[in-house]
Simulated assay, not measured.
Amino acid sequence: MSNMPSGTPGNHVFYVVFTPTDTANYDAVRNIPVTVEVAALPLALFCVALRNHV
């Protein structure tokens, strides 16, 4: 998930699935809301990221 776009800085909710190792005895749990706080990049890092991406 590290390469998933997260959008603008702030809190974002992603919905995840938990799949147990023992799927014969347990069911997967779907649509678990997980809040992720996205921080803004400092301007210097943003410029380096842009330069490396172009």
Rank of each mutant, 00 (worst) to 15 (best):
P20A: 01
V36H: 00
F46T: 13
G7L: 02
A28K: 14
Y26M: 06
M4H: 08
V17C: 09
T21S: 10
L45D: 15
P5D: 06
A24I: 08
P33K: 01
V17Q: 14
L45K: 13
A28W: 07
L43G: 02
Y15D: 01
V38K: 06
P9D: 04
E37G: 08
Y26C: 02
L45T: 09
A49G: 15
N25C: 05
I32P: 07
V34S: 03
T23G: 03
A40N: 12
F18G: 07
T19D: 06
F18T: 03
L50A: 11
G10C: 02
D22H: 02
L41Y: 12
L43N: 09
T35G: 01
L50P: 03
T35W: 01
P33E: 00
R30Q: 12
D27W: 06
D27E: 15
V13H: 03
L41H: 08
C47T: 13
S2A: 12
L43T: 13
L45N: 14
A40H: 04
D27K: 15
H53V: 05
A44T: 12
V17F: 04
C47Y: 12
E37D: 07
T35A: 03
A44R: 12
R51A: 15
P33A: 02
D22R: 05
N25D: 07
A49L: 15
G10Y: 01
N31K: 10
N52W: 10
A44G: 05
T35Y: 00
P9C: 02
H53N: 14
N25W: 04
A44P: 06
A49V: 10
P9N: 02
V54Q: 11
V38M: 05
N52H: 09
I32S: 04
V54L: 13
Y26P: 00
T21M: 05
D27C: 05
V36M: 00
M4Y: 13
P20Y: 04
